[in-house]
């Protein structure tokens, strides 16, 4: 016979994993965005014109 509380077990672990994967997804998006910002800033600084005397 199935335990009546099986759904609670399922939902508890489900929510736990959603929180972990949600955070990991947010971290990977943030890392991507920071890498592209860093690349743009480096490009901008490398392109800076030489100041004339």
């Amino acid at each position: 016979m199935t335990d009546p509380n099986l759904s609670w077990l399922f939902w508890a672990y489900g929510v736990g994993w959603v929180l972990i994967f949600g955070y990991l997804f947010w971290l990977s998006r943030r890392e991507q965005s920071l890498r592209s910002r860093l690349a743009r800033l480096r490009e901008l600084l490398e392109k800076k014109p030489e100041r004339k005397p």
Partner: peptide
């Protein structure tokens, strides 16, 4: 997770420094 987050924190600091420059 800590290793990934530390990598992101260092990137964050790098962006902040370059933005300031």
């Amino acid at each position: 997770i800590m290793r990934i987050r530390l990598r992101v924190a260092r990137l964050d600091r790098g962006v902040e420094d370059l933005t300031r420059r």
